[in-house]
Amino acid sequence: MTEVLVTLFVIFVLAMFVGFEVITKVPPTLHTPLMSGSNAISGITIIGALIVAGRGETTIGAVLGLIAVIFAMINCVGGFMVTDRMLRMFKKHPGKRK
């Protein structure tokens, strides 16, 4: 078990570095969509929610699963949709500038 945990920890640390590399390249003008978009990505916890909800072993498990699925879906769907709504508004100057 500890070995698995260490492997997972390695993945976690490396992914943090990837995150830092990718995110530092995002210009300030897109920081709000970045936030809502990354927010939607953190909705990945939906996987855990689906697994928990899908077990159907106990009532309490099912109830907790249902709550988790609803919360995570709000997070995913709301996050991606609102990000798209914002990004749609970003337009370049139609004229000849630069």
């Binding site: 640390v13 943090m16 995150g19 936030m35 990354s38 990945i44 996987i47 697994i51």
Partner: peptide
């Protein structure tokens, strides 16, 4: 992700964690 032993959650969570910190 650590709890349910799932790399997908760990990678994605770490990405967002890094983004928020920056």
């Amino acid at each position: 992700g650590f709890v349910i032993n799932n790399e997908g959650l760990i990678i994605s969570g770490a990405l967002v964690g890094a983004s928020g910190l920056i």
